[in-house]
């Protein structure tokens, strides 16, 4: 059809634009030589990644630990908050709504700087704990938004029906609200995990020496120039990402919504 030809062209060029760098990166992970000149197929960089890069893996496990704990905390707090904000009226509602969504809209560097200054002020030096707190904070608004958009699909009369049929507050919460919101809660958790694994700017501000996460470690590697070990790592992470996205597919609806 003529009318969508232009947008089709732009769309497919955009896909090339989005995927080409990742593709080049992946191909050169299998290159023998250290620079971007193709000299032959080799798995040497993968070998280096899996055997000779203890720091990368330490950072990787830090990242996983932080991602799971901060996402879990944010999901629990945020889901409860979403239930309160979506279905109840109370005095401080506007305040909680505004302040908890603000971290979403301020540039990361502002959150990073203010948290660093705060942590120094309260003399909190444990790097991983700082990162955990920071990640939970920036994950909360995502959880709130995703769970609220799920709850929005249901009418409040469902809660009234539960009460009318004899359920008390905690029974309504455990038997009706949480199971009903579950797809939203799961996708919120997955988003939070991804956001946490992804974060560089905030982490790099709050983390101290010896507590780097994977992105912070990658930064220290690429700051000095191209290193094929990073290429190999990218391939591994890309694979992981694609698996994760497949897992998340049923929950796409709520992600696209935001």
């Amino acid at each position: 059809m003529k009318k969508s030809r232009f947008s089709k062209l732009v769309f497919f060029l955009t896909l090339v634009f989005l995927f080409m760098p990742l593709f080049v990166l992946a191909v050169y992970a299998f290159n023998e030589s250290k620079n971007m000149l193709w000299t032959g197929f080799s798995l040497v960089w993968f070998e280096r990644l899996f055997t000779g890069s203890r720091n990368i893996w330490r950072a990787f496990w830090n990242s996983i630990l932080i991602a799971l704990t901060s996402a879990a905390t944010a999901t629990v707090l945020g889901s409860l908050g979403a239930i309160g904000i979506n279905w109840y009226n109370f005095k401080l509602k506007k305040y909680v709504q505004t302040v908890s969504l603000l971290p979403l809209v301020l540039p990361e560097i502002i959150i990073g700087v203010s948290m660093l200054i705060f942590f120094v002020g309260i003399d909190l030096h444990l790097g991983l704990l700082r990162i955990y707190i920071a990640h939970t904070t920036f994950n909360l608004p995502f959880v709130l938004l995703v769970v609220i958009s799920r709850l929005d699909e249901f009418d409040f009369s469902i809660i009234e029906a539960a009460r009318d049929l004899g359920a008390r507050e905690h029974q309504t919460l455990l038997r009706i609200i949480i199971p009903m919101a579950m797809p939203g809660i799961i996708s919120a958790f997955l988003i939070a995990v991804t956001m946490s694994l992804e974060d560089f700017v905030i982490t790099s501000f709050v983390s101290g020496p010896g507590s780097s996460t994977l992105p912070v470690h990658i930064y220290s590697m690429i700051r000095t120039g191209v290193s094929p070990v990073v290429n190999a790592l990218s391939v591994v992470l890309l694979g992981g990402t694609i698996c994760l996205v497949f897992l998340m597919r049923p929950f796409f609806k709520y992600i696209a919504h935001e």
Binding site: L25, P215, Y219, V226
Partner: peptide, 22 residues
Amino acid sequence: LFLIIIPFLTNFLIRIYAWQAI
């Protein structure tokens, strides 16, 4: 939607690194 989101979920620094390499 899936295709648009994949690169978006690739690590931010790796995306920058890819451009450095290119």
